[in-house]
């Protein structure tokens, strides 16, 4: 089931990404001021988008995990956090390159960049927590709590960073001064393509974790059986002689 879903999503992702490459490099016009470097935007935007969506998904899965006490939601949340971390890291890298080119610095205190970095820190902490050995159900509830609280914190991080100071270009600004038509279409196509990439990665990781959990339980059963075999004990343990 999951297997075929992954296959379809990955296929769609590959195809649409190929089309996007053509759109990005052949169809969309080159930006006058930024030049070729502006093309990085077509990666940066979808990465940032789906990174954030990934953390939102993790938060929702964690909520379900706490409500339903089902391990599989925890595994799903873990996969979403990991995928989100990947996307978030790439967002920061591409954003840094962009920033170096357009503002002359690798890093600046911009609300969106800062929010991405803080998110990265929060979920890195969450992954660190997950790597610590402790009983599964305790780990599941602890990680769920951190994932939820982390996501609740996002709007505050954004607002506070914006109040601190800001220089980010507002791309789809309401005044319409942002992108021209072809660029906008390309950007939207890239966002769509990256959806499939994101979904495939998420589901692949989820399937991996599911399989690994199943493997663990099989090993445990085997060990348990081996433990059980030697000599059935005499029935009454404490009866009087």
């Amino acid at each position: 089931m999951l297997h075929s879903k992954i296959a379809i999503s990955a296929l769609l992702g590959g195809l649409s990404l190929a089309i996007c490459q053509w759109l990005v490099f052949a169809w969309a016009p080159e930006e006058k001021v930024m030049g070729l470097v502006q093309k990085i935007f077509y990666m940066h935007l979808p990465l940032a988008w789906w990174g954030l969506v990934s953390f939102a998904t993790a938060c929702a899965a964690s909520l379900l995990c706490l409500i339903r006490h089902d391990r599989k939601y925890d595994l799903f949340s873990a996969s979403a956090v990991e995928t989100g971390m990947l996307f978030c890291t790439l967002t920061l890298v591409t954003g840094s390159i962009w920033g170096r080119h357009s503002w002359g610095v690798w890093w600046t205190w911009d609300p969106r960049l800062t929010t991405a970095l803080i998110l990265w820190f929060i979920y890195a902490g969450c992954m660190a927590l997950r790597s610590i050995p402790m009983p599964e159900h305790r780990k599941a509830s602890l990680c769920s709590v951190v994932t939820i609280v982390g996501f609740l914190d996002v709007p505050l991080v954004f607002l506070s960073a914006r109040l601190w100071r800001s220089i980010h270009p507002s791309v789809f600004a309401a005044n319409g001064g942002g992108l021209d038509m072809q660029m906008a279409v390309t950007a939207i196509a890239c966002v769509a393509a990256f959806f499939f990439i994101w979904l495939s990665l998420l589901l692949i990781r989820y399937r991996q974790l599911l399989l690994s959990a199943r493997l663990d339980s099989i090993i445990f059963e085997q060990l348990f059986k081996a433990e059980q075999e030697p000599a059935p004990k005499t029935k009454k343990l404490y009866a009087s002689e």
Partner: peptide, 17 residues
């Protein structure tokens, strides 16, 4: 150290304020 790496990023908005 575990508590600080989980807590500090969450505290950022409060600390800024």
């Amino acid at each position: 150290s575990l508590l600080s790496i989980v807590l500090f990023p969450l505290l950022t908005p409060l600390l800024l304020s």
